[in-house]
Nucleic acid binder design. Sequence first.
RNA 1: GGCGGCGUAGCCAAGCGGCCCAAGGCGACGGUUUGCAAAACCGUUAUUUCGUGGGUUCGAAUCCCACCGCCGCCUCCA
Length: 491
Amino acid sequence: MSFRLYNTLTRKTEEFQPLEAGRVGMYVCGPTVYGHAHLGHGKSYVSFDILLRYLRYLGYSVSYVQNITDVGHLTDDADAGEDKISKQAQREKKHPMAIAEYYTRSYFEDMDALNCIRPDISPRATGHIPEQIELVQTLLDKGYAYAVNGSVYFDVSKFGAYGKLSGRNVEEMQAGARVDVNAEKRHPADFALWKKAEPGHVMQWNSPWGRGYPGWHLECSVMSMKYLGKTIDIHGGGIENQFPHHECEIAQSEAANGVPFVRYWVHHNMVTVDGQKMGKSLGNFITLKQIFKEGHQRLSRLYNPLAVRQLILQSHYRSPIDFSDAALTAAQSGYDRITEAVLAVRKAMNTALTGQADADVVKQLDTMRQKFETAMNDDLNTAVALSVIFEMLKLANQVVSGKTTQATLNAVNDQFIKLGGEVLGIVKDEYAIAGGGDEQLLEHLIGLMIEQRQTARKKKDFAASDRIRNKLTEFGIVLEDSPAGTTWRRQ
RNA sequence: GGCGGCGUAGCCAAGCGGCCCAAGGCGACGGUUUGCAAAACCGUUAUUUCGUGGGUUCGAAUCCCACCGCCGCCUCCA
């Protein structure tokens, strides 16, 4: 069975067929860097990371481009007001570029923590002003745009296909429009390609139409064209960007190039927190850093970034996901079990027998792999794919608890790495011991306590042995007894 | 006002016409194990049941209609 992907443009799940066999060009709308990344970013980029990883797993050579929007945009109709980056710059008393740089680094840090593979290219909008001006000029030359008083607008009436992605038509949109009417525009649906800079607007550039800045749909068209060509295979983004952002991108790009802009439009759904929409303007958003290390009022504890990733994978990318403390706790528990099982497999390798891999285990693994691939092939059904990882967990624990061979354990571990690691990104190749030297000291000290406790237990002095274990539990160290001896782990 | 989505066990969630008397996770409960625990393993956890009421069909959680409830987009937002 081949890989099938839902295409917003056709509203159907279609067999994925790249333009050029074996190669895929994928563009994903990146963040506007004026604040720390939040849960919504997490869901978005984990979703596309899965798409990227699975395409690579299938053997495609993927070029993955994700922009960094480092020039904040106004609404396309506003005549006054500040852009988001400038606003943040004023607040922090820094240059807008410093703001963009700072939050770009923060963004990558969070995405690394979520185990998202970095894009091959992360083009900045401000680094492509000449190209954007060029595209505006092309649209003017071809008669799709008009210049008014230092600004340039796209003439929607000239592009018949406008609305094909979002299923809207220009006439119906006029009625309920909540945007202010801009007298410069010929039609309310026309959108800005280039805006004249108002006095005091920090981010501005020279153009044939005077000093100004690019319209907010322009950068994606320009940068995807530049790095991936006039027709790209996949364009991803949030469902809220379907209109107007992506609709405008299509209009600009196809009007300029005369060829289809995108073959597969992929949109992921939104995030809610405790059942409510999470929005920057609402102030109820939780940043990833708050979940990972700073804490938040709505959260009872900190969570492992990969547990957050796992929670995201538990539902479909086109479904909304509601983040709550309870949901995160549940995901963390499940994630911990997977991690423990993987570690147990790796640990058991040291003492396992030599010999051939257990044929039955190998067969079961293969069945699970097929189920996994079938699920992923069906528009990235990560919920089912994850359930396969849990089936593997069960199998792994059974294998580890019995007599087994190194080859068997290797087979289990390899599949964990391939499916859980390479594709889903929740199993690591190595679980680094944090802390380095201190960790060794800890190992020795706890080893000593375990020894003391063992002595007490041999003498049946359970009061003493329990005291040691309870005290360590207070410090977040859990002792576990087994026939092979006592081991410890962090809570 | 226009457009779109959702409602499945205590919670999260997959399934989208027969393999469903409905995956998987979390939680809970019982058992094995343990000095007691923890972890792991085994088992139980949706009164033919999938918001409610109709309909189509040999057959529906899955299709159609109505109703109720929730959410998102239409303005920058991932």
